[in-house]
């Protein structure tokens, strides 16, 4: 309590009324995170922790077998085909993240800036960019499968009209293009959200600061790099961290478009898809479930994401403070 009190930063001591009342007020602030903690703890943390323990058991099929310590983790990294599948999927996740950073976040930043510049119809564009986010992933998957269909899909038809037949491809069936196609569809889906966050970040920059900087002669790139980007670091942090997490958790879109095997020939397999296959056995005939192995994979995935998120947050926070 004492340490807590002394650590309250930047809060002026309120005009003391009675000591007990002030104490109550100080206490009251600790109630703030309680509702979130309660719901989150009960419905997320508890089931996940329970499931983490599965990773320590020999658990093929439906019935839990013996306690085997860390053998599942060992199998994941040393046995065929688990080892190969893991690194294969892991690489795809890295590509996913990089691709999303460029295709989704890079473009979103430019678009947010364009809207921020108050072009005519800004309201329309904002809504248009966000529209895809309103769709369910099942629809997104189905629509894009239609568009990317090699024989009558819009993309190949358009390429044909411009005389670019040589570029026509079975986009989702060719291992060289399938992953890229999925990443671009995911960017299409998430673009509007990133625009909104960037825009909210830009718009919360106090106008006085911009005006002052303008008076000081800042413009163009200088304005961008010295004023706008530093001041919207929180928004950039949010988007980067989110993109990182979502890329390494990438599941639904791949599942909807390329199935539980990350087709073709595991070229779109991701760690989360691989996890799903292990833990639930994929769709019919895909195999029996290996919950022990699946849980081990989930634990590894979790550790990896949390360590890297922590590092990412640490450095980006530092940037935020430096501004």
């Amino acid at each position: 309590m004492n340490t807590a009190e002394s650590q309250v930063k930047a809060v002026n001591k309120p005009a003391a009324k009675t000591k007990t009342k002030r104490k109550w007020k100080r206490w009251a602030i600790h109630l703030f995170p309680i509702p979130a903690l309660a719901i989150y703890g009960l419905f997320i943390v508890y089931p996940i922790l329970a499931a983490f323990t599965y990773s320590l058991f020999d658990w093929d099929g439906l019935v839990r077998g013996a306690f085997i310590g860390l053998e599942n983790f060992q199998a994941l990294f040393s046995l065929e085909p688990y080892k190969e599948l893991f690194w294969n999927a892991f690489q795809h996740n890295i590509v996913y993240f990089t691709g999303q950073l460029i295709a989704q976040n890079g473009l979103a930043f430019i678009l947010a800036f364009i809207i921020y510049k108050k072009i005519k119809g800004a309201e329309f564009f904002k809504i248009a960019f966000f529209m895809p986010r309103l769709l369910s992933i099942i629809v997104v998957g189905f629509l894009w499968k239609l568009i990317l269909n090699p024989n009558f899909g819009a993309l190949n038809v358009i390429l044909g009209k411009f005389g670019l037949e040589s570029l026509q491809k079975a986009w989702l069936g060719d291992p060289d293009t399938a992953l890229t196609a999925i990443i671009l569809v995911n960017s299409w889906f998430g673009l509007g959200f990133a625009v909104l966050i960037f825009l909210a970040g830009m718009q919360s920059i106090p106008h006085e600061l911009i005006e002052a900087a303008t008076l000081d002669g800042a413009k163009g790139w200088k304005m961008m790099s010295k004023i706008i980007i530093p001041l919207m670091m929180p928004a950039i942090t949010i988007i980067t961290v989110l993109t990182f997490i979502q890329s390494f958790e990438a599941f639904e879109l791949v599942y909807a478009m390329q199935g539980s095997q990350g087709e073709p020939y595991h070229s779109t397999d991701t760690l989360a898809i691989y996890f799903y296959r292990l833990a639930f056995g994929g769709s019919s005939g895909g195999g029996s479930s290996a919950i022990g192995l699946g849980s081990a994979l989930a634990v590894v995935l979790f550790l990896f994401i949390s360590v890297f998120t922590a590092i990412l947050l640490y450095f980006m926070r530092k940037k935020e403070v430096e501004m």
Binding site: T3, A4, Q7, V8, K9, I29, P33, A36, Y40, F43, I44, V45, Y46, P47, I48, A50, A51, V241, L242, I245, F248, E249, F251, A272, F275, Y276, A279, F280, G294, S295, A298, L301, F302, I305, S306, T309, A310, L313
Partner: peptide
Amino acid sequence: RYTFWWNNALFFFFLMGMMIPIKLGIVPL
């Protein structure tokens, strides 16, 4: 708005919820 020593940990604790496939916990849930 507050800087209690546990705040970063608390923040991270909440973030962890996004880092795990919740499907894993479906049976306990």
